[in-house]
Design a protein around this nucleic acid. Structure first.
Lengths: 270, 270
DNA sequence: CCATCTTTGTGCACGCGTTCACAAAGACAT
DNA sequence: ATGTCTTTGTGAACGCGTGCACAAAGATGG
């Protein structure tokens, strides 16, 4: 999954576990697909398969919402779509602002998934004067100086940050100061926010790195040894090398940029 | 977090808990930043703050990797960067293919975060003949018919899917058949894959929906009542309404768009 | 009206992840 | 060399999430 929580209350909101909340959109998506095919009811088993989860988990999730569903029959699709939508707050309109209209920001703005479910892009904001006025996804980009006014006038409470890492915290602070209380962060940085502000982050690079870990493990198992060069179960501790000046960087990697294949020498500091 | 696991072995790989693996890239990023500032050592407290996690959690995470770190001093930044990189498999080169070069796919291809850490975009693939040959991020888009050949010739084991939802499963099947064993899925669909194949998914819409849930909850608490109309703790079960035709959608919500405050009537189907 | 069959809702146990709290290890000063 | 002080590494307790397994509920057929 490409998501990671940041500063979450951890306390279950209104009795609904966080893990369940995270799955509700999944169920909603599957139910919407069924609804479009005019399927009247589904069993927990069918719906669970469509959502890619365990059926017991699905039933338990739904039990937190209430006793919808009819024993011996299943769940009424339309009714459940409505209940989950309401629970997620999708029955109302959420104006959002997106800050940082670069490659990623523009792609996100064009992404239909945003506007599809109650979310409305109220404004696109960028710090580059050259971008201002340009239409992206049919909306003219506005200058970042107007950020506070835009948020206030549109009643925005959700912001999306797609700026470079260096600008993210600063933008975040301004968003929060202007009244935004939920932030979706695409910049590869840890954002610090006051209590009461929710941050969710999406980091593409991190997802790939997690995949690489498992990929490496798979490759290592096939090659006979438990792990190729990565085997050495207990690596030698750093030991005596404390006040040895910043000579540290000199002994670990070969040099700043290593070989063209991007690989590291297997030699380790003694 | 904008990520969600799918079909994960759940068994800890080589003794390293999955939750720890997911945090390693976070630590690595923070350490890299320190390294660039030529900071020789960090304490668990400092590094934890930079990575946005608990210091005890960080120390426990590192303990799974081995006993790096020196008591009374902290961790050697360069050494730790190397150790984590090696553990994640980033000391080797990972050729990846990206399928679906639309708005999102093109943005991802241009995204520097991919190439930065051992990942190399080996090919961009699309099903639209009009796209083929066009350079995106300096690479010419190739036709999907060559997918198997491309994967084979480049030894690709990681694939990124950025196609529309409808095409995702089909593309996934072809990737897996061609030998890809790790997939990062940006399409809003549940992918089914055989055992041994890892899938991580990133769904922007889902992240926003989770934020909306918490946002709604916050708004509800401020307005006095624990939850506005969403309160009704135990909603009446759907009960007798089985073969009642698709009349369901007609009785649940008042109408398509409800009141200006975006709330729903408390009336439920009897 | 009764029997059977399907499917929900949930009590319970298990395992993973998080956090606390502290002993051990080492640096540093004297 | 000895003592003090800092920081790691980890044992142990706790809590959440997951999955099993089953009883209760209701539909369906006779």
């Amino acid at each position: 999954m490409a998501t990671g929580r940041t500063h979450r209350p951890a306390t279950r909101s209104r009795g609904i576990p966080e893990a369940t909340v995270a799955r509700l959109p999944l169920y909603l998506r599957a139910l919407t697909a069924l609804s479009e095919r005019s399927v009247p009811t589904v069993s927990s088993e069918e719906l669970a398969a469509a959502a890619g989860v365990n059926s017991a988990k699905l039933r338990k999730d739904f039990s937190y919402l209430g006793s919808y569903g009819t024993r011996g029959v299943g769940y009424d699709v339309e009714y459940l779509v409505y209940q989950i939508s309401r629970e997620l707050g999708l029955t109302q309109d959420w104006p959002i602002v997106m800050v940082g209209i670069g490659n990623l920001g523009a792609a996100l703005a064009n992404y239909g998934g945003f506007a599809s479910r109650g979310f409305r892009v109220a404004a696109l904001i960028d710090a580059d004067p050259a971008m201002v006025g340009k239409p992206v996804a049919g909306i003219a980009v506005q200058f970042i100086d107007d950020l506070e006014r835009i948020i206030d006038e549109n009643g925005v409470s959700i912001g999306v940050i797609a700026t470079p890492a260096g600008a993210a915290q600063q933008v975040c602070d301004r968003l929060v100061a202007a009244g935004v209380t939920s932030i979706l962060n695409f910049a590869p940085t840890v954002l610090s926010v006051p209590d009461g502000v929710d941050v969710r982050k999406v980091d593409l690079s991190i997802e790939l790195q997690i995949l690489a870990f498992h990929e490496q493990r798979k490759a290592g198992e096939e090659n006979g040894a438990p792990a190729p060069a990565a085997a050495a179960p207990v690596a030698p501790p750093v030991a005596a090398r404390t006040a040895a000046a910043p000579a540290a960087p000199a002994d670990a990697p070969g040099d700043g940029r290593n070989g063209p294949d991007g690989d590291m020498p297997a030699v380790m500091p003694a």
